[in-house]
Simulated scan of single mutants.
Amino acid sequence: MSNLRVGIIGATGGIGKLRCQYFTESPASEIVAVCARTPEAVREIAEQYGARSYYIRWEDLVADPDVTAVSVASSNASHYAITRAALEAGKHVCVEYPLAQNVEQYDELFGIAEARQVILHDALTVRAEALHNALRNNFDRIGSPVWAHYRYYGGGTATWYIDPEPRGNPFIALHIHFIEQQIDFFGQPKWIEATQWETSAGGKRISGNVMMGFRDAVTGYMEFGMGFPANPSYQITYLGSDGFLEFNNRKLNLHTADGVEAIEIGENRALKLDTDNFVAQALSGEQPLSSPVVGRRAIELCLAATRSATENQRVEV
């Protein structure tokens, strides 16, 4: 069986570089082309990973006959157009989340993949991540769940978060990851409420808050802000009848009547596992780590949050 010949779009970004590494490490794939907007940077990454071709325009990589699979690691709003073109060209496609900006696009892309008999992989890696699994493995120890609180505030380094053009829908960009995590713990929500604040005064900043109501009066709350002049802060709390799990930037602790127990998170290999899974799907028909049903539902809920913030009211889901 011949190797999967991969072209990576967005190869010089943080995720793109990791995909370059993991596709290179896989014995069943090789990088034959890379694409990014900066000529010097994309040439360097091509040399580093032995890619035979490098491009400034993603259209040229998609048209490369030597490429049999495309990894899309560009900005959010570009995912749909690139993925559609690659599928139409008969390529297998791995797309960083979010795959699309609405469910109509999502369904269209999977329809094209089915018609072309190629793999479309929605790389929603949440359930494979080390922190999520550490929380999941200790979740029963806090008793009956009461609520969850996620909070992330970051500085201005990830500029695409605060620029509407590459970012796309703000709730999809900021909250799809957290929403999917809480669905895995609590099941499908009954309602959703959201607010959004964005400004360009004194530098671009954005903040979005989402609350979801689940069965048995369980509530999930998420705060996400980017562009603020401070060190990043990432906190998670799951409160239950018998205790709570608390993550604060790097450490995870379990608090119960017996005291405080440090929980080992372990190495996060989600993107590596996801890369290997995509290669196996394309070459041997392995099942995806994350079902398209999960990705589609996460987008639906992000759009419900958008509606809630726009209409300033709770939305039943």
Rank of each mutant, 00 (worst) to 15 (best):
S2N: 12
N3M: 14
R5W: 00
G7H: 07
A11F: 09
T12N: 10
L18Q: 14
F23K: 02
A28D: 15
S29H: 03
A33H: 07
R43E: 15
E44D: 14
I45F: 01
R52K: 14
Y55C: 10
W58C: 04
L61R: 07
L61M: 06
V62L: 05
D64S: 05
S71P: 09
N76L: 07
I82C: 07
I82F: 02
L87I: 14
E88C: 09
G90S: 04
V93T: 09
L109Q: 09
A113P: 08
E114G: 12
Q117A: 13
L120I: 14
A134L: 01
D140M: 02
H149A: 12
I162V: 15
I162G: 06
D163T: 14
P164S: 08
N169H: 11
P170V: 14
E180G: 03
K190E: 15
W191S: 15
I192D: 05
T199S: 15
A201G: 08
G202D: 02
G202A: 08
G203E: 05
R205C: 07
M211F: 09
V218S: 00
T219V: 15
P229L: 01
S233L: 13
I236V: 15
L239R: 14
D242T: 07
L245S: 01
F247D: 00
N249V: 13
L254C: 09
L254E: 00
L254A: 05
D258T: 11
G259L: 03
I263W: 06
E264R: 11
N268Q: 09
R269F: 02
D276H: 12
N277A: 13
L283N: 05
V294S: 10
G295Y: 08
A298P: 05
I299Y: 02
L301W: 03
L303N: 08
L303S: 08
R307Q: 15
S308Y: 05
R314S: 11
